[in-house]
Measured scan of single mutants.
Amino acid sequence: TKVFYNGTYVEFNNPEKAKKYAEKVAKKVGGTFTEKNGQFHVE
């Protein structure tokens, strides 16, 4: 499961961990995250 952010991504074996990371990054940058095709995108 990949989490895309700012033109790069971090890959996780565990979708649950990926979601938590996406939430954390989104919170940090004051943005939101969306799930597309089983991957997370932070905006």
Rank of each mutant, 00 (worst) to 15 (best):
T34E: 09
F33T: 08
A22T: 02
H41D: 05
T32P: 02
K20L: 12
K19Y: 09
K2L: 09
K17G: 10
N14L: 06
Y21V: 05
T32D: 06
V42T: 02
K2Q: 05
Y5A: 04
K28R: 14
K27V: 09
V10N: 04
T32N: 09
P15A: 12
V25M: 14
Y5R: 00
V3D: 01
N37T: 05
E35Y: 09
A26F: 00
Y9L: 07
N37S: 07
G30Q: 07
F4K: 03
V10W: 13
K2I: 07
G7R: 02
E16M: 10
G30T: 04
K24D: 13
V25S: 03
K24V: 12
K24W: 14
T34H: 13
E35I: 07
A18I: 00
V10H: 08
E43T: 13
V10T: 09
K28Q: 13
A22P: 03
N37H: 08
E16R: 09
H41A: 06
V42Q: 01
E23F: 04
K20S: 11
A18D: 02
E43S: 13
K28M: 15
N14M: 06
E23C: 14
V42W: 04
A18Q: 00
T8L: 11
F40P: 01
E35R: 02
F33L: 14
Y5H: 09
Y21W: 12
K2M: 07
Y21Q: 04
V42N: 00
T32A: 08
P15T: 10
K17T: 14
V29G: 05
K19Q: 09
Y21T: 03
V29S: 08
F40N: 02
Y21R: 02
V29A: 07
T34G: 06
A26P: 01
N14A: 07
T32C: 13
T32H: 12
N6D: 11
K27G: 07
T32L: 08
G7H: 07
F40W: 13
A18T: 01
N37Q: 08
T34F: 15
T1R: 05
F33Y: 12
A26H: 01
T34K: 10
T32G: 07
T1L: 07
P15E: 09
T8V: 11
N14I: 06
K2D: 02
T8C: 15
E35K: 06
V25E: 06
Q39E: 13
F12H: 02
G38S: 05
T8Q: 11
A26T: 04
N13T: 13
G30M: 07
E23W: 04
T8I: 11
T34Y: 15
A26G: 03
N37K: 07
K17A: 15
K19T: 03
G30S: 06
V25A: 06
N13D: 15
Y21C: 12
F4G: 02
K27A: 12
T32F: 14
K24I: 13
T1S: 10
T32S: 11
V3M: 02
E11W: 11
E16V: 10
F33M: 13
E11C: 15
P15H: 14
N14Q: 07
G31P: 02
Y21E: 05
N13A: 14
N6V: 04
A22F: 02
V42R: 00
P15C: 14
V29I: 14
N14G: 07
F33A: 10
K28W: 11
T8K: 12
K28Y: 10
Y21P: 03
K2E: 02
E11D: 07
V25T: 07
N37V: 03
A18F: 00
V29P: 01
K27F: 06
F40H: 01
K36D: 08
K19V: 05
E23N: 06
K17M: 14
Q39C: 13
K20P: 00
G38L: 04
E23M: 09
N6G: 11
T8F: 14
N6P: 01
Y9W: 13
V42E: 00
F12I: 03
F40Y: 13
E16P: 02
F40D: 01
N13E: 15
P15F: 15
A22C: 01
A18E: 03
N13H: 10
Y9I: 11
P15N: 09
K17R: 11
G31C: 08
V25I: 14
G7S: 06
V25W: 11
E23T: 06
F12E: 01
E23K: 09
K2N: 04
N6W: 06
G31H: 06
V10Q: 08
Y21N: 04
Q39S: 13
K17F: 12
F33E: 02
N13C: 15
P15R: 15
V42C: 04
V29D: 04
T32R: 11
T1Y: 15
G30P: 00
K2H: 05
G7T: 05
G30H: 09
K24N: 12
T34M: 10
N6L: 10
K27H: 10
A18G: 04
A18H: 01
F33P: 05
H41C: 14
G38T: 02
V42P: 00
Q39W: 08
H41M: 10
H41K: 05
K19W: 06
N13W: 10
V25H: 06
Q39A: 13
K36H: 11
K36S: 10
K17Y: 12
K19G: 05
F40Q: 01
Q39H: 15
F40S: 00
Y9Q: 06
A18P: 00
E16H: 09
N13R: 11
V25K: 07
N37L: 09
A18Y: 00
P15L: 12
K36R: 12
Y9A: 08
K36W: 09
G30W: 02
E23I: 08
F33D: 01
T34C: 15
E35C: 14
G7P: 00
A26D: 00
F4P: 01
Y9S: 08
Y5W: 12
K36N: 08
K24P: 02
K20D: 14
G31Q: 04
N37G: 10
V25P: 00
V25R: 03
K20I: 13
Y21A: 05
V10S: 06
E23P: 00
F12Q: 00
Y9D: 04
A22Q: 01
E35G: 00
K24F: 13
F33W: 14
